[in-house]
């Protein structure tokens, strides 16, 4: 039985690419990991160690080739694509390195998007929630700007607001500051921390920046597809 406080639970998770072909290669070799509500954890490790691969599995963008993965105590192996998509949309927020806003929409509309695809139609509540979040991330003035006309740091703030709009239990960030200058990076990082404290949202952040990793509560270190160290900071 999973403890209800476990936002994320992985046991013996494997991931291979090219399954069944002669080029089959296993990237993750039996990952065990638990994240509890309110944790602010850094996932670190050398390039190619499998951090993004792991994050994609946790984010239900991809399926493990072995092992068990549960989000909020709900096992995911039995879900079909639509089930995974719904669970992902409601429980998990993403922040990617390359901001990845949708340029055809305004900042506000980008933030509304997870709610829009979940509910099917726009409504006043999602507009309000998105506007409030944009104000929280300091972009209240830029709400109606097209996404493509924002600076890198601003885009990443919009992406964070978007990741939060569904009030997810877990936010996954893959090098969220990798494309930003030091000043913006600090701002974005502080923002995530602030939200983590205020809402008890769990964060799992991949970062190459030791300075930022230093500001997380827990360090999970991945080397060659294995967790070699997992310690509080």
């Amino acid at each position: 039985m999973a403890e209800p406080t476990n936002v994320l639970e992985l046991s013996d998770v494997h991931k291979s690419y090219g399954t069944g072909s002669p080029l089959e290669v296993e990237i993750l070799h039996g990952i065990d990991l638990r994240l509890q509500r309110g944790e602010f954890a850094a996932l670190i490790g050398p390039s190619g160690s499998g951090k993004s691969t792991l994050l994609n599995l946790i984010g239900l963008l991809d399926r493990p080739t072995g092992g068990h993965l549960a989000i909020d105590g709900q096992p995911t192996s039995g879900l079909d694509d639509t089930g995974l998509t719904r669970l992902r949309g409601r429980r998990i927020g993403f922040v990617f390195q390359h901001h990845l806003l949708i340029p055809a929409f305004t900042a506000l509309e980008n933030v509304m998007m997870p709610m829009l695809v979940d509910r099917g139609r726009p409504d006043a509540e999602m507009r309000e929630r998105a506007a409030t979040l944009l104000e929280q991330v300091g972009l209240g003035e830029r709400m109606n700007n097209p996404a493509s006309q924002l600076s890198g740091g601003q885009q990443q703030r919009v992406a964070i607001a978007r990741a939060l709009v569904m009030r997810p239990s877990l936010v996954l960030a893959d090098e969220p500051t990798g494309n930003l200058d030091t000043h913006s990076a600090d701002g974005v990082f502080a923002l995530m921390r602030e939200i983590n404290v205020a809402r008890q949202t769990t964060f799992l952040i991949v970062t190459h920046d030791p300075r930022l990793a230093q500001r997380c509560d827990r360090h999970i270190e991945l080397v060659d597809g294995r967790i070699v160290a997992d310690r509080p900071n």
């Binding site: 963008l61 694509d81 639509t82 998509t85 719904r86 949309g89 990845l100 949708i102 055809a104 695809v117």
Partner: peptide
């Protein structure tokens, strides 16, 4: 492709 990927990550279904 990227936008489609991001929409899927945000919970848009294949049907949508």
């Amino acid at each position: 492709a990227k936008e489609i990927g991001i929409l899927r990550a945000m919970g848009a279904t294949r049907g949508q």
